[in-house]
């Protein structure tokens, strides 16, 4: 047998070198800041913007928080394609299963309560306890919508009396790919209030996050990516709302549009563009400004289609 290389270069008997202790972070040895540049959430992955752009995100007080991806129209295109691909599987899942998956998202939100509270406090410039209250409300709202997954058919569906030997019934089905312009001010509670109802009934969503406060949306994307939600069911884009929303509104493969976060100036233009392929459009409701009111099924019912079946009986 040839000479084997020795694994102990210092020879036998030499003491192993002890690892150097990590110096504590002190005033003299400050820790280097980790510079964050977040990415988009498209098709279950975290790609950079196709354009390679990013933009600085500032706290309410003006301090630099992080960089966020500055999505382009091609990212919207990719997100819509991903949503379309994901639609079939998500809408075919049983309502009970969808509810379970969404409930799991709420559990994970709850686990990251402190992180979300920090992001909300920094972005919206509110006190920590107020931010924490908003996070709690967001988690509760997500749970509320998760519970509706297998109940929505009971309020939106019906069995209809008809004059003939038929059992006639109607039931709600998901609209398809829904473009969501997320609320600008309420960065987490507002986002949850518009995203959860879209997902509950089996739609896939392409969300344009709050332009100036996108970080809670980015953190939510990280939650969704590690939850059981199939990739592509929710896609989150960060960037300029005035640049992305019109692309979404004109896209002929988008079936519905939620204008919750569209300013009055662009809302009319968006609604006109959406008319091209007869998208369902949910207008912004001024009453929802703070998003702290009791939720109603209204937002879920906006993105379902009614299917009516005539089933022969008595034959």
């Amino acid at each position: 047998m040839p000479d084997m290389p020795t694994t102990e270069p210092a020879g036998p008997g030499a003491p192993p070198t002890a690892p150097q202790p990590v110096p504590p972070v002190t005033r003299e040895h400050p820790r280097l800041a980790v510079q964050k540049t977040y990415k988009l959430y498209v098709g279950g992955a975290f790609p950079r913007s196709e354009s390679g752009r990013s933009y600085a995100v500032h706290a309410a007080g003006g301090a630099h928080l992080a960089n966020a991806a500055h999505a382009s129209r091609k990212d919207v295109r990719d997100a819509v394609a991903a949503a379309r691909r994901a639609c079939a599987r998500w809408s075919a899942a049983t309502a009970y299963n969808r509810g379970q998956v969404l409930y799991r998202v709420a559990e994970m939100l709850e686990d990251r309560r402190e992180q979300f509270a920090e992001l909300v406090a920094a972005g919206e410039g509110v006190a920590h306890h107020a931010a924490l209250a908003a996070v709690d409300a967001a988690v509760d709202r997500w749970v509320w919508y998760a519970g509706w997954a297998d109940k929505i058919a009971q309020i939106a569906g019906s069995s209809n009396p008809v004059a003939g030997p038929y059992f006639n019934f109607s039931l709600p089905e998901p609209t398809g790919v829904v473009g969501v312009v997320a609320p600008q001010e309420s960065s987490l509670l507002g986002l949850v209030s518009v995203l959860a109802p879209v997902l509950t009934s089996g739609n896939a969503a392409v969300v344009v996050a709050s332009e100036l406060r996108p970080l809670p949306a980015v953190a939510l994307a990280e939650v969704l990516a590690t939850s059981d939600l199939p990739g592509g069911v929710a896609n989150i884009l960060t960037g300029r709302t005035a640049e992305l929303a019109p692309v979404l509104a004109r896209h002929r493969d988008v079936d519905a549009l939620d204008l919750a976060g569209a300013s009055a100036e662009i809302a009319v233009e968006l609604e006109q563009a959406a008319a091209d392929n007869v998208k369902r459009v949910l207008r912004r409701d001024p009453a929802e400004h703070g998003w702290d009111g009791e939720p109603t099924p209204r937002r879920m019912l906006a993105f379902v289609e009614t299917k009516t079946v005539w089933h022969p009986i008595g034959v």
Binding site: V80, H251, R252, D253, A273
Partner: peptide, 9 residues
């Protein structure tokens, strides 16, 4: 047209 087309078109 400048608008993305849908497969259903």
């Amino acid at each position: 047209s400048g608008a993305y087309a849908g497969a259903d078109d």
